[in-house]
């Protein structure tokens, strides 16, 4: 039996909205540690790793490990039927072929349940080694989303270059070119607005903007985003979910021929 109750049910809707454009079908792994997902997009260029710890839920019970294969798009459609302030409970039997989502309105006057059929999904899991990255940038998530969107008007790829002076996002295209440089700055009163650059050595890598724009769909989940890069390694774009876990996206770099 798997049962998980989340007072802030809207959190799961935001998570689904940040994954469904990248991956169609995926397995949610339920265990005593929590609720997790690892999935690659169909072209194997990007990977999502999402983890919600069991202690972040208001109630969490998972008697045995369970893998729930779902269409992320269909799950997102169901979660759209949840009120913004509803409490969400997910339930699944150990050998069952469906998962139930129960939505309770804050005043308990409306209770609904939606059942989603599960699917058998063969998913390829990759081992992601712990890495000390050459550079890590923490910045406002909305600022990162804006830069990716703005640069997409000019080009298809972005060169992200971290130096001690800041992080520079550059693109070129048929109509011209664009650069945005963000400098580190602290803000004691508004920590969500600060930019922190932790650099062991300068690093510059090129990525497809299309994927970064998909990652930015996670912006409503966190005020800050953490971008970690090392030479010739996939970038990690991580959004921390307060008191619960994170959603991290990995994107393979473009390789110069």
């Amino acid at each position: 039996m798997f049962e998980a109750r989340l007072t802030q049910g809207v959190l799961l809707r935001k998570l689904l909205d940040s994954m469904k454009d990248l991956v169609q079908d995926a397995n949610f792994d339920c265990s005593s540690t929590g609720f997790a997902l690892q999935a690659m997009d169909s072209s194997h260029v990007s990977l999502i790793h999402m983890q919600l710890r069991s202690d972040g839920f208001d109630h969490f019970r998972c008697d045995r490990n369970l893998s729930m294969g779902v269409s992320l798009n269909n799950m997102a459609k169901i979660l759209k039927c949840m009120g913004n302030d509803d409490v969400l409970t997910m339930k699944a039997e150990d050998q069952g072929d469906s998962v139930t989502f129960m939505f309770e309105s804050a005043n308990q006057e409306r209770i609904s349940d939606f059942e989603l059929k599960l699917m058998d999904i063969d998913s390829e899991q990759l081992g992601i080694p712990d890495t000390d990255y050459s550079a890590t940038v923490k910045m406002p998530s909305a600022e990162f989303a804006r830069i990716c969107k703005d640069l997409s008007t000019i080009g298809d790829t972005v060169l992200i270059a971290v130096t001690k002076d800041g992080v520079r996002f550059s693109t070129t295209g048929d109509i011209g070119s664009a650069n945005v440089t963000v400098r580190s700055h602290s803000n004691v009163d508004k920590p969500e607005e600060q930019v922190v650059i932790d650099m062991q050595e300068p690093v510059a890598l090129t990525f497809a903007l299309r994927y970064l724009n998909s990652f930015a769909k996670a912006t409503p989940l966190s005020n800050q985003v953490m971008i970690s890069m090392s030479k010739e390694l996939p970038v990690v774009v991580q959004y921390r979910i307060e008191d619960m876990g994170h959603i991290s996206y990995y994107l393979a770099p473009k390789i110069e021929d």
């Binding site: 260029v45 990759l126 790829t157 996939p234 393979a252 390789i255 021929d257």
Partner: peptide, 14 residues
């Protein structure tokens, strides 16, 4: 010219 890398080139199977 650049080509898009694939994740399997960087990460191995579990």
């Amino acid at each position: 010219k650049s080509t898009q890398g694939r994740l399997e080139s960087f990460f191995g199977p579990v």
